[in-house]
Design a protein around this nucleic acid. Structure first.
Lengths: 72, 72
DNA sequence: ATTATATGTAAATATATCTTTACATCTTGT
DNA sequence: ACAAGATGTAAAGATATATTTACATATAAT
């Protein structure tokens, strides 16, 4: 069961660059890029910071993909 | 800034053992124990599964400790 | 006291998350 | 065309998360 995130959409809607988001959250730009490109999931701590920073409900930013009920 | 979790309290309130929780979520009992004892944070995927399984709002189960604003 | 169940913990190992450095590509404006 | 800013990506290394096995302690019931 995979995790879906809507970071890119929310970030772009707010006119924020990956660079600014990374700097403000004290991670590297590559980390933001990798997460947006679904290379891996953010840690719980970073996830909470992202939702807070982007000012959206946590579960609208991250949720489980129910279509892959049986998948790895 | 650390992550606070209320897994133990919610789990006990529901009368669920670490063993059952671990089995139902397909992780080991040691993983549940370590998370409850704050050895480390759950992954984002496991965090989402925990909130769903325990049937509580995500941000009432996990949140950032604002009292450690400047701490590592 | 003994048994059963639940919880705590440790070491070794595997995989996931994140950083650093570096270079490539894309887009937009001039 | 050129430059500047934004994004994509890769390899090597560090730290975090999770498993496996094993043993210890706690608690409650009989």
């Amino acid at each position: 069961m995979k995790v879906i995130n809507h970071i890119r959409e929310v970030r772009q809607r707010k006119g924020i660059t990956q660079i600014k988001l990374a700097e403000d959250l004290q991670v590297t730009r590559q980390t933001i890029n990798a997460i947006e490109k679904n290379k891996y999931n953010p840690s719980l701590e970073l996830s909470l910071k992202l939702a807070e920073y982007l000012d959206v409900p946590f579960t609208s930013l991250f949720y489980l993909d129910k279509s892959e009920e049986n998948a790895e």
